[in-house]
Design a protein around this nucleic acid. Structure first.
Lengths: 130, 130
DNA sequence: CTGGATCCACTTTGATACTG
DNA sequence: CAGTATCAAAGTGGATCCAG
C-alpha cells in the first residue's frame, strides 16, 4: 500500500474523486441507517419490514423505506412481496450484500467497543474551551 | 464472531438501540466525509487543512471543518496549530483513529471493487419499472 | 392490518463572501 | 491559510392518507 498519497491509483475507481461512481456508493452504504439495516439483515437473515422497523429503533418509516429501496437498487438486498392478506414483504441480503456484512459488522463492533474511549475524549474536549 | 444473533450480549453497548451512545458514534463515523477524512489521513499521515480539502474532492469547507471538529472531539484525530504567518494547521490520526483505519479502508476498498456489480444491479433495477 | 406514498415543519448541507 | 457568517437548497422525520 502506498502511504505517501502521492500516486493515487489511476486506472481504478477512487472514492476520493468526486465524480467517481464509487463515491455515490460510499454515500449510500456509509450512512447510519444503511449500515444498521445491513447488520440487522446479516444477523436476522430474512426479515419482514415490520421486523426491521422494530429492530432498528428510531428509524422512521420513510427513511427505512428509502434506505431499503436504495440498497435494493444497488443489489445489496432483495425485496420479496407475498401477495396475501395482509401483504407480506420480506427483505434479505444478496451475496453482494453479505460480502459487505463483515466490514459493516466490524464498524458496528468498533463503535460499541471503543465507545468508552470516545466518551472520555469528548469530555476532555468539551472542557478545553469553556 | 457470532452471526446468529441468539446470544446478544446484554451488558454492552448496542447500536440498534436508539438511546445507546454508540449510535451517535456510528452516526459520526458512518458518513461519507468522516470515512474519507480518516482514510486520507491514514494514507497521508499528517496533513494540512488545505491538503485534505484538495485530496477529498467535492467537500465544502464547512463540512470539512465540521467533520474534522467532530472527529477531533471524539479523539480520532489531533489538530495542531502552528502560529506563523500564514497560520498552519495540521491534522493527524490518533492511535484510536488508526484503530478504525483498517475498517474504513475496507469500506472504501469494498465500494471501489464492487462498483461494477452495483452499477449493473442499478441498471437492471431501473429497467424493471419503466 | 401491513407496507409505503404524500404533505409539511424542521434540520442539515452547500455556495459564496468575508475575517484574523 | 484556515477558517467563520450567511442564506438558499436539499434532506429528514412525523403525521396522515392510500392500496391491497
Amino acid at each position: 500500500m502506498d502511504l505517501t498519497g502521492t500516486d493515487a491509483p489511476a486506472a481504478r475507481f477512487d472514492a476520493f474523486t468526486a465524480s467517481c461512481p464509487s463515491r455515490q456508493l460510499l454515500d449510500t452504504i456509509g450512512n447510519k441507517w444503511a449500515s444498521l439495516v445491513i447488520v440487522a439483515l446479516g444477523l436476522g437473515g430474512r426479515m419482514r419490514y415490520s421486523e426491521l422497523a422494530a429492530r432498528i429503533a428510531g428509524v422512521s418509516q420513510k427513511m427505512l423505506t428509502q434506505t431499503l429501496r436504495n440498497l435494493e437498487r444497488d443489489g445489496l438486498l432483495t425485496r420479496t412481496v407475498t401477495p396475501a392478506v395482509p401483504v407480506r414483504v420480506d427483505y434479505e441480503l444478496t451475496s453482494l450484500g453479505r460480502s459487505l456484512l463483515e466490514t459493516m459488522h466490524h464498524l458496528k463492533e468498533w463503535a460499541e467497543t471503543h465507545m468508552p474511549e470516545v466518551h472520555q475524549a469528548r469530555e476532555e474536549y468539551d472542557q478545553r474551551d469553556t
